[in-house]
C-alpha cells in the first residue's frame, strides 16, 4: 500500500529535525518492522580558497526529479524486502548545519534496511536532477558537484 502512494519528495527549505522524530513515531504501529535505517544529509561549511560555505540554494528540474524519485522507489522495492521507504529533499536555501536530505527505510531486519537506505542515497545523488548553489559569506557562490 505504502509503495503505490504517490509521494511528494521536495520540501521548501531545511528539513526540521522534528520531522525525523515524527516519522519514527508514525511507524510504531507497524509491528512487522524490526529495523529502521535513516540517512540525514547535512550542509557542511566547506572552505574553498579561504571562503566558507554558509548555505546551499537547491533548485531542481522538479517534474523529472519527481519521476526519477518514483523510479528509484520502484527499483528499491523490487530489490529489497522493505516494508516502507520515505524520501525528503530540500529545495531553496538550506543553511550550514541544517538538513537537506532525509531517507528513511524500514524492514523486518537490519541488514536489508541499511542496504536499502544506502541504495537510495547513492541513486539519488547520481540520478536526480537537483542543483546546488554553494553560497559563501561574501554572497559569492560556486556550483556544487556530487563526487
Amino acid at each position: 500500500m505504502d509503495k503505490k502512494k504517490p509521494k511528494k519528495v521536495f520540501v521548501q527549505g531545511a528539513i526540521p529535525p522534528e520531522k525525523i522524530a515524527n516519522s519514527v513515531a508514525n511507524h510504531q504501529s507497524k509491528t512487522n518492522i524490526g529495523a529502521h535505517s535513516i540517512f540525514l544529509g547535512q550542509i557542511r561549511a566547506d572552505e574553498v580558497e579561504g571562503k566558507t560555505v554558509t548555505a546551499i540554494d537547491y533548485t531542481a528540474y522538479e517534474e523529472m526529479a519527481e519521476k526519477v524519485f518514483h523510479d528509484i522507489r520502484e527499483a528499491a522495492f523490487a530489490k529489497f524486502d522493505i516494508t516502507c521507504a520515505h524520501i525528503y529533499h530540500s529545495l531553496g536555501k538550506v543553511k550550514v548545519g541544517e538538513l537537506c536530505l532525509f531517507v528513511f527505510t524500514s524492514s523486518a531486519h537490519r541488514k536489508i534496511a541499511i542496504e536499502a537506505t544506502n541504495y537510495f542515497v547513492e541513486e539519488i545523488k547520481a540520478k536526480v536532477p537537483v542543483f546546488g548553489k554553494e553560497i559563501f559569506e561574501d554572497e559569492t557562490h560556486q556550483w556544487k558537484v556530487n563526487k
Partner: peptide, 10 residues
C-alpha cells in the same frame, strides 16, 4: 528539452 549541469542532490 532540458539542459542539466552536474547533479548535486543530497
Amino acid at each position: 528539452i532540458a539542459l542539466l549541469p552536474p547533479f548535486a542532490g543530497g
